[in-house]
Simulated scan of single mutants.
Amino acid sequence: MLEQTAEVIHTASDGIWVQAVEPSGCGTCGGQGCASRRIAELFQRKHRNFMVECDLALAPGDRVVIGIANGSVLRSAVRVYGLPLALMLSGALLAQAMQPGDGAALLGMLLGGVVGWSVARGGRAARPVVLRRDNGIPFQVVMKGQS
């Protein structure tokens, strides 16, 4: 299960809206921020809110841990990108076999792409769920010989 900490933005009758919380870092740099984190912040897009199914009574500002099943991200990517691409190539090859020429291949590719896009849109995507409340207590690393 892939997990991410999120903050509740607002509640609705069919779930809650959450926003992912960025981790504060590993702490090795003494809170100054490492170079890779600073570079990542340059390309950071604005935060997005997501609807998540939830059975807990939560209020805006609460922190929760949300999760999505292992493999669901890969399956969704294959459905959304791989299926239309495969159908585009298949359509182009089939049209080329039936009628040699670039025009037929282009038409077959476009037709395969439209069919692949419509089939990919019809599937149901895996939705994240709230696993538990985030209690906000960070874990403590204990070095060998220390208690």
Rank of each mutant, 00 (worst) to 15 (best):
L110I: 15
L56A: 13
Q19A: 14
D134Y: 02
L2W: 10
D62Q: 03
S24F: 02
L2R: 09
C29T: 07
G15T: 01
I66A: 10
E3Q: 15
V21R: 03
G67H: 12
G31K: 14
W17I: 05
R124G: 13
L131I: 15
G61T: 12
C26V: 07
G27N: 12
A20C: 05
L106R: 11
Q140I: 11
S76W: 08
C54A: 08
L110H: 04
L2T: 08
Q44R: 05
W17K: 06
I39H: 05
D55F: 04
R132H: 13
L74Y: 12
G113R: 03
L83N: 05
A57F: 06
D62M: 00
A59F: 01
Q44D: 03
Q4C: 05
C54G: 04
V141C: 03
L131Y: 11
H47A: 07
V8N: 03
R48V: 10
S147V: 13
T5E: 12
V8Y: 02
N49Y: 00
V52G: 09
A95N: 01
L2K: 09
G101H: 02
D102F: 01
G116R: 02
R63Y: 00
G25V: 06
L74D: 07
A125I: 04
E7R: 05
G61C: 13
D55K: 10
V64C: 14
G136L: 08
G116V: 02
G82E: 08
S76C: 11
G31I: 09
G145N: 10
A77H: 11
G112E: 12
I16P: 03
G103L: 15
L89M: 15
V114D: 06
E53I: 07
L2D: 07
G108T: 08
V52N: 07
H10R: 04
Q44C: 01
A97L: 07
G101Y: 01
L87R: 00
A120M: 00
A126W: 13
Y81P: 07
R79L: 03
G103P: 00
L2F: 14
L87Y: 01
L74W: 12
